[in-house]
Each structure stands twice: as structure tokens, then as C-alpha cells.
């Protein structure tokens, strides 16, 4: 196998795919909650992706085709190599001796919630994994999630599968039914994490969130990924990506993550045009 070769590629939904990349040194060290940064080609952007699993020299990541870079990434197939692949970055999730925990995964966030749930489960905690999706057709990793926890609850916004409603709704239902959680992990879109934290704050349950701000170097040099946590500046790449969700200023992160929205939309258009052109030639 070649350096940074894509050894396996699996299409999970029309929008979401999973790749396993040959990077033995990274695979040896990777732990739940950590991430990598990759570049597709010589001129490409650096994008961070959370490690979904790592073994036998392979690091698996899951991506959604939302911007120019992820579209370009999706253009690669098994046997192709990434230009750069660096990690494992960030601090691993702390999983020891928590007791009964709920792990909430929202959409693509389930790809990150999965290794966290697995690590918590293997560390001997009782783990309820609550995975939320818009609709039944885009449910991913159901089998893997089932194996990584004590009880799995799938939720869909439209009620087409499992619990009808948001993950926070399911969590509240469980709490109200008398389940006592020692800790909650919320991983997914910023809005989902924000509302999960509001809920757990009311119930006084310590909550860890996995933050995904815009990032460049991932080693604490540029300060791009800074967050306001409890009134202090923290860097997601070196101090996180896990933080106490009750201390995070979500509104600030939400605004900052939209910094380059117009740019991203243009980049996506450009790539889709190129792909369209390619398809016509083919």
C-alpha cells in the first residue's frame, strides 16, 4: 500500500461516503475524539475530519459532500492517494469511569459519535446511543452503532423510522422516564449541540460537546479555531475538540462558522460545474 492511499471507499448515502486511508503511524496513535487534516491535491484546502475508526494501518473518516474540497475528495477512488494526511490531532475523548452515559449523534455527527460511544462502552460505561437523522433513507452506520453501545435509539425528524423527533426529544423522554445519566456527549450540528446543552443544563448533567470550528494548521499556530469557553479563549485544535458544553458560547461559533459561506457556495458551484462537464464528456 502507498502512503495516504485510499484502500476502501464505501458510499453510505448519496451525500455521505466513508474512506479508509493507509497511514500506519496515525492509525497506531489514533483514539476516539481525535481528528486528522487532509488535502486532496497540491493546491487544495486543508480540511479537518474526525477519525471514525483506526486499525491495521488504516484510518477511516466519513465526509459529506458539501463544499469544493469534499467534492474533490469524492472524486478520488480506491487506489488513489491523498496529497496530505496529518494526525492524530486534538485531545482524545475522556471515557473512563463515567457510569451511565448518553451519546447523542446528529446526522453526520453519528460518524463521530460512533467511536466515542464505542470507546465509552469498551471502558465499561453503560452507553445509550441516540442517533438522529432527517429521514429514514439517510440513516447511516446503524449496525455499527448498535454494536458500540448498550441501547441504540434511532430518531428521525419526519418520523419515517424510529423515534419521531429530535435527539434532544428522545433524551428528554428517557430522562423523564426516570433514567439517571451521569454524563452526556453531544456530537453533531451546532444547533443540535446547543439545544442538547440547554436541556442537560436544566437537568444538571455534565455534558461534553465535540466542536468543529474552521481550522487551518490544527497544531495551535494560527488561532483560527478559537472558541469562547467560560469567558476564555480556547483553541479547538489543541485544547479540544471536546469541551464542557455548558461553557461554550455557541452563538459565537455559529456566526464564525458562517464566515466563508459565500466563498464555500461559489467553490461548490465551481466543482459541480467541473463534475457536470466531466459527465457530459463521459
Amino acid at each position: 500500500m502507498k502512503k495516504y492511499e485510499i484502500v476502501n471507499k464505501r458510499v453510505l448515502t448519496p451525500e455521505i461516503s466513508q474512506i479508509s486511508v493507509y497511514a500506519p503511524l496515525v492509525a497506531d496513535k489514533a483514539r476516539a475524539g481525535q481528528f486528522i487534516i487532509l488535502r486532496v491535491d497540491e493546491e487544495g484546502e486543508r480540511i479537518p475530519l474526525t477519525i471514525s475508526s483506526a486499525r491495521d494501518g488504516l484510518v477511516t473518516v466519513i465526509y459529506q459532500k458539501i463544499g469544493g474540497t469534499t467534492l474533490a475528495l469524492d472524486g478520488l477512488n480506491e487506489g488513489d492517494c491523498l496529497h496530505d494526511f496529518v494526525g492524530p490531532l486534538g485531545r482524545p475523548t475522556e471515557v473512563e469511569d463515567l457510569g451511565r452515559v448518553a451519546v447523542l449523534g446528529g446526522g453526520l455527527g453519528c460518524a463521530i459519535a460512533l467511536p466515542v460511544a464505542r470507546a465509552l462502552h469498551q471502558a465499561g460505561n453503560r452507553v445509550d446511543l441516540i442517533g438522529g437523522f432527517k429521514t429514514k433513507d439517510i440513516v447511516i452506520l446503524e449496525e455499527e452503532m448498535g454494536q458500540a453501545c448498550t441501547d441504540l435509539y434511532i430518531c428521525t425528524d419526519d418520523g419515517s423510522y424510529g423515534y419521531h423527533g429530535f435527539v434532544t426529544g428522545k433524551l428528554e423522554e428517557l430522562i423523564n422516564s426516570g433514567v439517571h445519566y451521569d454524563h452526556v456527549f453531544a456530537i453533531g450540528p451546532l444547533m443540535m449541540m446547543k439545544f442538547a446543552c440547554k436541556l442537560t443544563e436544566r437537568h444538571n448533567i455534565p455534558t461534553t460537546v465535540s466542536m468543529n470550528p474552521i481550522m487551518i494548521d490544527g497544531t495551535g499556530m494560527c488561532g483560527c479555531c478559537r472558541l469562547n469557553v467560560g469567558g476564555e479563549v480556547k483553541f479547538a485544535c489543541v485544547d479540544g475538540p471536546d469541551f464542557d458544553g455548558h461553557q461554550v458560547d455557541f452563538d459565537e461559533v455559529i456566526a464564525r462558522n458562517n464566515t466563508y459561506k459565500d466563498f464555500e457556495a461559489r467553490s461548490r458551484e465551481k466543482h459541480l460545474c467541473r463534475l457536470g462537464g466531466g459527465a457530459m464528456n463521459g
Binding site: 487551518i216 483560527c224 478559537r226 469562547n228 464564525r256
Partner: peptide
Amino acid sequence: EGLVGVYSANEYLTR
């Protein structure tokens, strides 16, 4: 300092 449009020099220069 968390507003959109506040850069560290390192980030601005790196970009």
C-alpha cells in the same frame, strides 16, 4: 474578539 473579521496575524498570513 470572537466576531467574524477578527484574525490573528498568524491566521491571516497563513491563509
